[in-house]
């Protein structure tokens, strides 16, 4: 029996869906017991949410004031100490996990497997490289702790209904004061979260301006969809960074992805490869996005979006 420690991600009140997806990935390793570690401050409700996820045997709660904000320099020493008793340490490949897990790996003096997309054996994992243009089988030597991040778009959240045992845990690790949290600047989240939305409407450079993005939002709201964007649209200042989809933004897997005025750079395509159906609307018939779209329509998005909205 091997033991897996899964690092929970949360915003102080809610468990992030990436955690359940990470758990689902770890459940694919044979003969393991899964424990979730929640680091937070006043985080009983979050621990409760983690305990409800199927497959979880135990939830460990490291509740202390310093854990109120997610600073890798503060969390990593605690995780490394607790991880000593585990064979695997998994975190989500979100900005939280990407920031944190390599620090944990370094403290444990082991290499990290980034972005697991498939478990192919107890010590072998498929992961995308070169912006998803190649898939590598990473193999971890026997006797080495496996520290990894999980590409959450490759996994669905498993069922709930469990009631795992919750246990408080304390760490004696010395915590640094050289890193201080100032603030999170976040756009009001009035639309479905990109990483969990079943429908995502995305706009690119072709949308042309911040004001023009209103028609994208209008269509999204009619459909109850999340809104994403290409790097070009974010760079141009049309939308905020948290909406960027692609290699360096969010990797998403909605049932339906509709791209308006997005040319389809490989860095963008890598972020949407797991979408159920990809629809592309672009006025350039040669746009690369049409190569991977399931349904393509050549035309002017400023005519097509209002027509779609009206006919839906």
């Amino acid at each position: 029996m091997s033991h897996v420690l899964i690092i929970a991600e949360h915003d102080g009140s809610q468990l992030n869906s990436a955690t359940a997806k990470t758990i689902n990935c770890a459940a694919g390793i044979d003969n393991t017991e899964l424990h979730v570690l929640v680091l937070g401050s006043g985080c009983d409700a979050i621990a409760q949410q983690a305990a409800e996820i199927a497959g979880v045997a135990k939830v460990l709660v490291a509740d202390r004031n310093e854990n109120a904000v997610p600073l890798a320099a503060v969390l990593a020493p605690q995780i490394a100490e607790i991880a000593a008793a585990y064979d695997y340490v998994f975190g989500p490949s979100t900005t939280f996990g990407k920031d944190l897990m390599p620090a944990v790996a370094a403290l444990l003096d082991v290499e990290q497997v980034s972005d697991i997309m498939e478990v192919t054996g107890p010590r072998s994992f498929k992961r995308p490289v070169y912006a998803g243009n190649a898939i590598l089988n990473a193999e971890v030597a026997e006797g080495t702790k496996v520290v990894a991040t999980v590409r959450t778009a490759s996994y669905k959240a498993g069922p709930t209904g469990n009631s795992a045992h919750i246990e408080a845990i304390s760490s004696t690790a010395a915590l640094p004061s050289h890193t201080r949290y100032v603030e999170l600047q976040s756009e009001a989240a009035e639309r479905p979260d990109l990483q969990t939305a079943k429908l995502v409407i995305s706009g690119g450079r072709g949308v042309g301006s911040k004001e023009n993005f209103d028609i994208v939002y209008k269509l999204a709201d009619k459909l109850g969809a999340g809104v994403g964007a290409s790097r070009a649209a974010v760079d141009a200042g049309y939308v905020s960074n948290d909406m960027q989809v692609g290699q360096t933004g969010k990797i998403i897997a909605p049932d339906l992805y509709m791209a308006f005025g997005i040319s389809g750079a490989i860095q963008h395509l890598t972020g949407i490869k797991d979408a159920g159906t990809i629809v592309a609307i672009n006025n350039d018939p040669e746009a690369a996005i049409f190569e991977i779209a399931d349904i393509g329509l050549v035309g002017d998005l400023f005519e097509i979006i209002p027509e779609l909205e009206q006919k839906l």
Binding site: V110, A134, E139, I278, I295
Partner: peptide, 21 residues
């Protein structure tokens, strides 16, 4: 301790359709 095994080309998506309107 982490070594690269086999490399693969990712599965490509099935060819899509173009619609006119």
């Amino acid at each position: 301790k982490v070594t690269a095994g086999n490399w693969e080309t990712p599965a490509s998506r099935a060819k899509g359709i173009m619609v006119n309107d």
